[in-house]
Computed example of a mutant assay.
Amino acid sequence: MHELSLVASILDIIEDYAVREGFDQVKSLRLSCGKLSSVVPQCLQFAFEVQSKDTRAEGAVLRLDIQPVIIHCLACDKDFEVDHFETSCPECGGQEVLLTGGTEELQLIELDVD
């Protein structure tokens, strides 16, 4: 469960920001990652609840924005949102497609603090 190490890194980032910006408590945080990044939202939430105890983020609301899988077809020059990586274009059937979205790594996007 790599979500444990992801949450540990997030909590380290929060602590660094708290020292630099002078806040005491995190009310909420928003994260973002691609659908293909292998982050399991339920595992991330559980890991956050457990690891944030006795930290500035204890009790904070965790929101996770999952970016969709996007492919670009070189034949018809269009982008498509798909459920999983497709090797052919859903519109023209072209075999030259590029994966252009859904692989983004976990990022801390926003903190609401006191």
Rank of each mutant, 00 (worst) to 15 (best):
F46L: 15
Q45K: 15
I71Q: 02
E21H: 15
D77K: 15
I70L: 12
D65L: 04
C73L: 07
K53V: 08
K27T: 11
I71L: 05
G34S: 08
A60I: 04
R63Q: 10
F80Q: 08
E49H: 15
F23A: 06
C73E: 01
A75G: 09
E81S: 13
I71S: 01
R56D: 01
G22R: 12
C76P: 04
C33A: 11
R30V: 02
Q42V: 10
K35E: 05
L31N: 00
A47Q: 08
Q51D: 04
F46N: 15
L31R: 04
V61Q: 13
F48D: 00
K27L: 13
R63A: 04
R63N: 09
D83I: 09
L74V: 11
V40Y: 12
C76N: 10
Q25A: 13
Q25M: 13
D77H: 14
G22M: 07
S52K: 10
A47N: 05
A57W: 06
V69D: 00
D54L: 10
K35M: 03
V50K: 12
Q42T: 14
V39E: 05
L74A: 10
C33R: 04
V69W: 03
S37H: 11
S28G: 07
S28L: 06
T55L: 08
Q25R: 15
R56M: 06
R20S: 12
S37E: 06
P68C: 01
R56G: 01
E49F: 13
D24V: 13
T55C: 05
C43I: 11
C76K: 12
H72S: 09
R20E: 13
G59L: 09
I66H: 00
P68E: 02
V19Y: 11
H72G: 00
F80N: 05
V69F: 02
R63G: 00
E49L: 14
H84S: 14
V40W: 09
E81P: 01
D79M: 10
H84A: 14
C73Y: 03
C76H: 09
P41C: 10
Q45I: 08
C76M: 09
V82S: 02
E81C: 12
L64K: 07
H84V: 12
R63D: 02
V50N: 08
V61D: 08
C33G: 04
E21R: 15
